[in-house]
């Protein structure tokens, strides 16, 4: 009877770990999953395997995953340019404010991933998973970010301090579930 309860708990924890939006929570659920599975090993009479599973599965792997998450934080930036043709031709070399923005993000231990998009900004806002979406028009630069992302404040402060000549407008969107980690 106890075995069945813990086996059901295993399945539930696995499904929950798969369906969480945040990777950090999924790691914690995986740790709980391997703890329960080590208890199931104990119930089936394999204490050796249970000890190894409890130590490796729920301690070392969890810590390794957490360190890896902290090391590799991808920050995806969508860049849409709807200026006139002359500006579009200049797209081959990056605008200078994007280069300095990337350098700023690397300094904050993140990995900026720049995606040039030809679609209009509305479809990007509706469909893609982004951390920042940049809309470059003739005179203004519109930057869309999540309101719950704590990095946005630092990005805004940095851009206003260093590129105040560029007409940058920052808009915070309400959706926050799409971001990972």
């Amino acid at each position: 009877m106890t075995e069945n309860i813990f086996l059901i708990a295993l399945v539930v924890l696995a499904i929950v770990a798969l369906n969480t939006k945040k990777l950090r929570r999924a790691v914690v659920y995986l740790g709980a999953f391997s703890l329960v599975s080590s208890f199931v090993y104990l119930l089936y009479g394999a204490p050796d395997v249970a000890i190894a599973e409890a130590i490796i599965g729920s301690t070392i792997t969890t810590v390794l995953y957490l360190v890896a998450l902290r090391k590799y934080q991808v920050f995806s930036i969508y860049y849409a340019n709807s200026a006139n043709d002359q500006n579009l031709r200049q797209l081959k070399n990056e605008p200078p404010f994007l280069t300095s923005l990337e350098a700023f993000l690397i300094k904050r231990e993140m990995e900026p991933q720049l995606i040039y998009s030809g679609e209009p900004i509305e479809t990007i806002l509706a469909q893609e998973k982004f951390d920042l979406a940049i809309h470059h028009t003739d005179q203004d630069i519109w930057i869309y970010g999540c309101a719950e992302d704590y990095q946005i404040d630092a990005v805004e402060e940095y851009l206003l301090a260093n590129h105040s000549d560029l007409n940058i407008h920052l808009i915070r969107c309400a959706e926050g579930d799409d971001n990972e980690a």
Partner: peptide, 21 residues
């Protein structure tokens, strides 16, 4: 008893890993 070199060594390594935290 249950356990052995591998499991005990992993427990000892957990000391260093928690020290990193």
């Amino acid at each position: 008893s249950p356990g052995g070199g591998f499991q005990g060594g992993a427990v000892l390594a957990a000391v260093f890993i928690t020290r990193y935290l």
